[in-house]
């Protein structure tokens, strides 16, 4: 691990380690209107999910309901929870967590659905 470090690189690293903390002002200023639009979308999706549940779709009922819930969650996460403006690392974190969670499901159902 004896890396040749150029001084310029060193400076860049020294700066990077502390530099981003200076950008703590949260550059994004989302307009109130955007939030209202997202909210309208969420309410509309709720209406859709209630309506669809009234129609007899059989096995598709659950799937559509879960898909709509996933879209709503994405809207909340992306806009309300500011994932849109977050650093890549937070997005990676969320992805890792979801993948692990999905793994639990797949492996558990590898048992349940073949019993």
């Amino acid at each position: 691990m004896s890396e040749q470090t150029q001084t310029g690189e060193l400076a860049a690293q020294a700066h990077a380690a502390h530099g981003d903390e200076h950008a703590q002002g949260h550059g994004h200023n989302v307009s109130y209107g955007t939030y209202f639009l997202v909210w309208l979308g969420l309410v509309a999706l709720t209406a859709v999910t209630v309506t669809i549940a009234g129609i007899h779709l059989g096995s598709l009922t659950l799937i559509t309901a879960m898909l709509i819930a996933a879209v709503k969650t994405t809207l909340v996460g992306y806009h309300f929870m500011h994932l849109k403006y977050d650093n890549v690392i937070i997005k990676v974190f969320v992805l890792v967590c979801l993948v692990i969670f999905l793994t639990f499901w797949i492996l558990t159902f590898s048992d349940l659905s073949f019993r």
Partner: peptide, 22 residues
């Protein structure tokens, strides 16, 4: 480590598919 928990359950009565996968 997240993918192998089923090997504690080989004789629990879980499905054969699952046992082979784990």
């Amino acid at each position: 480590g997240y993918l192998v928990w089923g090997h504690h359950m080989f004789v629990s009565g879980m499905s054969d598919t699952s046992r082979i996968v784990f």
